[in-house]
Design a binder for these strands. Structure first.
Lengths: 149, 149
DNA sequence: TTACAAACATTGTATCTACAACTATTGTCG
DNA sequence: CGACAATAGTTGTAGATACAATGTTTGTAA
């Protein structure tokens, strides 16, 4: 849908300004879609993201700074996020023996099987993404990367 | 910069998945840029957004639901957001005489002059946006609108 | 005209975020 | 070695967000 209708604004100063608003709005829209998608599994989008990051390195553990550097929103607090996941039994954390400053984090079997369950629900969500063709998606990726410099 | 470097992930399942992550990441990136930009003026991005919405209708007031329907993030709480702005003297609110359910909100002179000050700092920010040409921006807008259906 | 639904907004509460201050451990260099 | 910087993570806290429950006022229809 045209951005103008979504936020009921009929004009923008210029195409670049509209673009900034459009990215923010679409980001928020996607975030909300994801929040709904993960809600039945009782995790938030950022928690899901961290689980995926850990699955990506499994069975090798990651330390907290590694997790942070791969997160979408760097400013969210990895310590507390991981603690939430630990309370749910989805990750384990251990103080590293060779460097006792760092904390190794690893996804548990329970965490892995939760991700597997969520994977199965990804189809509907992907359908929405398929409003764009593969070429469109590629072009969008190119433009966003270019924007960020 | 390539998304792969920004979040240190070397591959995605497919172009559509990468696209979703890219939009979320770029949205968060832009949001943080804005937060920095508005910080010297002691307002948040959503507060700025509401002020702009009110300037758009000035001198006609808007009721709360109108403000909400134009906001980027519909789920943030307009009542409390407007109350923050009122405490700073940037908006006025009056219970509508003809329909006492609704609250009329209007930007004050102080609010308008704050926006004027912020407008003047928009150049730097626009420079970042100009990593994309006008055609690029147009194409990006088209793709985002198409994605949201 | 009274009961009920709808429209508009506020409040409660648990959770999350931003950002700075803090602790603990390890590395480095005179 | 001993002082100090750098690295890794935790905690405090003020404010923001999500979502549901609640409070008012107005519309409507038996």
């Amino acid at each position: 849908m045209a951005l103008e209708d979504d936020i009921r604004q009929d004009k923008f100063e210029n195409e670049h300004h509209k673009m900034a608003v459009n990215i923010l709005f679409t980001g928020s829209w996607l975030h909300n879609l994801n929040a709904l998608r993960f809600k039945p599994f009782e995790i938030t989008p950022e928690q899901y993201n961290v689980l995926r990051i850990l699955r990506g390195s499994h069975p090798k553990p990651l330390m907290l700074t590694e997790v942070t550097s791969r997160m979408l929103d760097k400013s969210s607090n990895a310590t507390r996020l991981v603690e939430k996941l630990r309370q749910k039994g989805l990750v384990k954390r251990e103080i590293c023996e060779t460097n006792r400053r760092q904390v190794d984090i690893i996804i548990t079997d329970k965490g892995l099987s939760l991700l597997t369950k969520i994977d199965k629900t990804t189809d509907d969500w992907m359908k929405t993404m398929k409003n764009l063709s593969r070429q469109d998606a590629q072009e969008l990726n190119r433009l966003l990367d270019k924007l960020r410099g």
